[in-house]
Design a protein around this nucleic acid. Structure first.
Lengths: 340, 340
DNA sequence: ACTGGCACTCGACTTACGGGAGTGCCAAAG
DNA sequence: CTTTGGCACTCCCGTAAGTCGAGTGCCAGT
């Protein structure tokens, strides 16, 4: 049976009321709080249909209705009116992000801001190296057989690694390598780096090839393997809002999932351009997050995307508000990055 | 009334049983599980005294006894026998830390290891800059009026900050400043840096003084103000072990406290040499942590201390085991740092 | 000083019982 | 065919009452 307009309106009302009150909503309460223009009995009939179609369910016989994951999905896709941010919120975002002094600071401020505005758990991925370019590579001698490799990306990200050399290298050797490495890699996108690094080794004079190979392997590790690893998290305390009701009584699995960087990156890292992605309950591949929803989007200077950010909360969340906030914050962060 | 040996023994038994079972312990159960050589009635008398002295209390009349914060304190100070780590644990620590490739990696591995071994929340402070020396300072031109300042400390820590110059500077200027800065600061302890930085500005030729002053102010900010800021956290999911019983029913305040870096630094950062510090319940100055205990210690290469680490859990925790683990991990991390 | 005995307390768990919100169904009206 | 009022039914929730048992405090006796 197709859903006519009124049934959709009923679903929207149920979602909005349930999100607001956290209590199963009944037919009588619905007609009182919304101008549906029909009687409770009619609403009950509609509800029966909605339930049959899998959009709502009853916790027990003779309780009100609660949206299912499918119900939230329909709501998000077709029923939610986008909320504009209040000027106060806009100002808060601007003010909060304005004082940032470096990338670390930007990320930390962003994640706190997101957590505060949405009152949920916020996650911000550092600008992904694979989407950045090399601005500069620096080699700092630590001892005769040890170098510190420092890479600065155009996004402001800085990565460092220790390099153990096979044999001693003097200052000139180091300067030489530094020049070569920069000549070859500066300005290049990291995704394109591996063949260039290989070329570096091949072009190197035989007596220094060993040393260069050593540096190259660390370079590859840094640039490729650990590339997307970093992220920031805030607002875990918000999980305890709404009592033990959300997350089916146990925060355990959620907290466990939040500890796994790999999982978080999967959640917010897979971003298509200019889309806000909403994963509701069961749609999450991670079993531990079957009772949670994730709203995520990409950010970056201009229209390019260098990383993802998002929030995680109970399936019973204010989707329109959250989506609006996540988008707005992402845009401000992108603007901020564009300035550098 | 002074506590004779048997009363102390009773207290120890109560603490051990309560920690193990999480249930108030009664006189009968006590004599059954421990070889006290006396009857339940006698134990009851002892318990009455212990309660009067404030070391134990009854959740309700006619329930068993539970240690108070003061009881745990006495237990930790005088009654706990230090547990030696099992060879398996030692091996686990060694294996887990062995693969670390840089400081970030060491810290992350350490904090996860601690959380896993103690099954509690672990916190590890990055080596404090104020206790480190400058190994090298690098200036990387980003644009004509922008520099990236990278500082490498002897502990392996790397900090970077963006410097906005008052006017354009060419490559030679930058190299020049870099030389001066390194000549003045390399090898110096960061705590001693401020006057040296000031001297740099004073000694500078007038036409470049403006630029140098700008760099100097960022240097001071980096070296001093934000000096001890970084730390890593793991194991928050462990807070949910033991049901809602620990932390008087609400994780909220604890999670909130864990979000505040300032608070965490206060907890594990104030370390006296070679002491393991235990703060039990009320002894914590942070109100949100009145239901928690913190075990912390310093770590560093050799006998010097460069940072703190520790764990946080319910007052009802296995103090001897936790203390042993925290100490052991701190020692291994220190050894690891000494190798670099 | 320790012990056995005993009355007492009080929380935890069960059972019983209305009250009430909400439903599903049906017959009548539009 | 849709909507509506009526009505019986279901089942959660809060309260009250009753039982059970672990644990205590006290006391008299060794």
């Amino acid at each position: 049976m197709p859903l006519d307009d009124r049934k959709l309106e009923v679903l929207r009302a149920i979602v909005e009321d349930y999100v607001a009150t956290q209590e199963p909503v009944g037919s009588k309460a619905l007609v009182e709080r919304h101008q549906l223009g029909v009687s409770p009995a009619t609403v009950r009939n509609d509800m029966a249909v909605l339930e049959e179609e899998g959009y709502i369910r009853q916790p027990h016989t003779s309780a009100g209705r609660v949206p299912t994951d499918a119900g939230y999905r329909l709501f998000v896709d077709r029923l939610s009116r986008i909320k504009a941010l209040s000027p106060a919120e806009r100002r808060a975002i601007e003010r909060f992000l304005a004082g940032a002094v470096d990338l670390d600071d930007v990320v930390h401020r962003t994640v706190r801001l997101l957590a505060q505005l949405t009152r949920q758990v916020a996650v911000v991925q550092y600008p992904s190296l694979s989407r950045s370019s090399v601005r500069h590579l620096e080699l700092v001698p630590i001892s005769t057989t040890r170098l510190m490799l420092v890479m600065i990306a155009d996004t402001g990200r800085v990565e460092q690694r220790l390099v153990e050399l096979p044999g001693p290298a003097d200052t000139d050797d180091v300067l030489d390598m530094r020049r070569q490495v920069n000549a070859k890699l500066a300005g290049e996108r990291l995704a394109d780096a591996p063949p260039l690094v290989q070329a570096l080794v091949d072009e190197c004079s035989p007596e220094k090839r060993n040393t260069m190979a050593c540096l190259a392997s660390v370079l590859l590790e840094t640039l490729v393997e650990r590339s997307d690893e970093r992220l920031a998290l805030a607002g875990t305390a918000n999980l305890t809002r709404g009592g033990v009701l959300d997350f089916q009584g146990s925060l355990r699995p959620v907290l466990e999932a939040l500890e796994e960087e790999v999982i978080l990156l999967k959640l917010i890292g897979e971003v298509e351009p200019s889309t806000t992605r909403v994963r509701i309950g069961d749609e999450n591949e991670i079993d531990n997050l079957r009772a949670a929803s994730v709203v995520s989007t990409g950010y970056g200077p201009g229209t390019t995307i260098v990383g993802g950010l998002g929030v995680l909360g109970p399936t019973r969340m204010d989707y329109p508000g959250t989506i609006a906030t996540v988008r707005a914050v992402a845009r401000y962060v992108g603007d901020l990055l564009a300035q550098n």
